[in-house]
Nucleic acid binder design. Structure first.
Lengths: 340, 340
DNA sequence: ACTGGCACTCGCCGCCGCCGAGTGCCAGGA
DNA sequence: TCCTGGCACTCGGCGGCGGCGAGTGCCAGT
């Protein structure tokens, strides 16, 4: 049973009003606030149908209607236009650009910006190591048997790791190792490096072999396999707005989920396509986030995706502007990375 | 009017019971649970005095008593012995030590450990740059006019910053700069470096002068002045335990404060002495934290203090064990840094 | 196909009275 | 002087009650 246009209009009106007021919306209030051109009674009939179809529900008899997850889904898919950003928002985005001194700074500013624009919890993943390529590898001797391995990627990430050498190593040896690893790995994407590292070890002459093996182990284990996806979080205080009416009473599960990096990473598992993703309530795979919605997208220079970002909020959130903000911030961040 | 011993016993009992049950405690319940050797009536008289003196109060007439901030203060100062850690806690602390691969990892493990032990919000400051000394400075040429400056401190922190050069620079020039800055700054504490940097610039010969100036600017501005004190946070979900009875209803101000790095840094401003610090409710300088208590201390190898750490929770928290945990974790972390 | 009218439902709110935990006070006893 | 048992009192919490009103579903009429 397809819904006719007016029913869709009604649904849209319900979603908009409910998001704005956070109170169940009744037929009378609807016709007053939106010029639907019909009487409350007609709207009521439409509502009955929408309820049968599972798009809205009544918290209790004789209260107004509230959208269901399914209703929000339809709204997002069919009924909402992306709301253009306000000049103030554009200005805010541009202002955040200036003065960022390094990648850490950029990520932190971005996540705060996003939290502020959407008034929700924002999450920004650092550019993924696996999607980046090696710009430079540096070896810094700390002592005779200890090196610091510093890796700089084309996305600006800098990772460092301690390497314990099996035996002491002279300065020339370090120089030689440094040259070799840069020759072999420089410019390659991290995902492609494992075989290169392997080959590199095998063709290393005996004197340097043990050191190179130690180095290779660290490279493989810590930089590639456990590619340590970092992320930044901001705006958790926004969860406490609305006096815990949202999130069925307890912030606890949400806060817990936000602290589990593994869980957060899942959120960005599917942003590879570069398309923007909206997961509403039950659609979330993560148990603890079933009472929340997540708007996420990938970002990166040009069309490539080097990381994910998004916001988390109550299912009753302003999807059009949230989506607009997330998309805009992702684009700006991508541009910023590109011009670097 | 000094409080006699029994009154203090009564206060201690009230604090312990209230912390355990989270409910106002009455005279009858007190004599039942603690063998005070006197009748409820006597306890009531003592309570009246304690109330006059401002150590406890009644939420409303005909309810039990609840400790005031002042009551907790007296309890912490005079009435509580530090509770020894349980074997399970000791084991947890030791377990966290093994397998930490770098400073980031150590700090993150520490903060999670602390949150878990105390079941509260834990905050750990990274070793302060200003208290650390330079172990090594590395210059990595990224392009002809761009250097990456990497600084490694004796506490294991690695900071990097981009340097835009006024003109292109050859490889030998970079080597020369690298040698010079390491000679001059290596081993010195960061707080002592500004004059050294200044001097270094002045005695640099013309060809390298502009590059050195750029380098010096970055060094001074970003590494010393704005010495970027980072910190890690964990256990925010613990705030939502106790159904927001604590924190007078809203988590919002607390969460907001926790996101303001500036505010958090204030918490550790006074840990320099290395002594453990307890700030209870109103004693907090930070407005938003007036409904919370903070237990903080410094940590560092041996007796020096390189950073702060602590936990934040409701004023009705188990001070003895919280204090024990914070102290123990700080000591372990200090030892870890020392043996490194 | 829409509308006005109408009876009905039910959550919210304020009211009331009971119960009981807890208190303050007092007179008597060690 | 200090402690105790007894006693009257207070007041928050709880459950039941009734009225109000927003909102609904249905139906007959246009």
């Amino acid at each position: 049973m397809p819904l006719d246009d007016r029913k869709l209009d009604v649904l849209r009106a319900i979603v908009e009003d409910y998001v704005a007021t956070q109170e169940p919306v009744g037929s009378k209030a609807l016709v007053e606030r939106h010029h639907l051109g019909v009487s409350p009674a007609t709207v009521r009939n439409d509502m009955a149908v929408l309820e049968d179809e599972g798009y809205i529900r009544q918290p209790h008899t004789s209260a107004g209607r509230v959208p269901t997850d399914r209703g929000y889904r339809l709204f997002v898919d069919k009924l909402s236009r992306v709301k253009p950003l306000s000049p103030a928002e554009r200005r805010a985005i541009e202002r955040f650009l200036i003065g960022a001194v390094d990648l850490d700074d950029v990520v932190h500013r971005t996540v705060r910006l996003l939290a502020q624009l959407t008034r929700q919890v924002a999450i920004v993943q650092y550019p993924r190591l696996s999607r980046s390529s090696v710009r430079h590898l540096e070896l810094v001797p700390l002592s005779a048997t200890r090196l610091l391995l510093v890796m700089i990627t084309d996305t600006g990430r800098v990772e460092q790791r301690l390497v314990e050498l099996p035996g002491p190593l002279g300065a020339e040896a370090v120089t030689s190792l440094r040259r070799k690893i840069n020759e072999r790995l420089g410019g390659h994407r991290l995902v492609d490096t494992p075989p290169l590292v392997q080959a590199m070890v095998e063709e290393t002459a005996t004197p340097l072999r043990p050191a190179m093996t130690a180095l290779a182990t660290v490279l493989l284990e810590t930089l590639v396999e456990r590619s340590e996806e970092r992320m930044a979080l901001a705006g958790t205080a926004n969860l406490a707005r609305g006096g815990m009416l949202d999130f069925q009473g307890s912030l606890r599960p949400i806060l817990e989920a936000l602290e589990e990096e593994v869980i957060l990473l899942k959120l960005f598992g599917e942003v590879s396509g570069g398309t923007l993703n909206v997961r509403i309530g039950d659609e979330n795979e993560i148990e603890d986030l079933r009472s929340a919605s997540v708007v996420s997208t990938g970002y990166g220079p040009g069309t490539t995706v080097v990381g994910g970002m998004g916001v988390l909020g109550p299912t009753r959130m302003d999807y059009p502007s949230t989506i607009a903000s997330v998309r805009a911030v992702a684009r700006y961040l991508g541009d910023l990375l590109a011009q670097n």
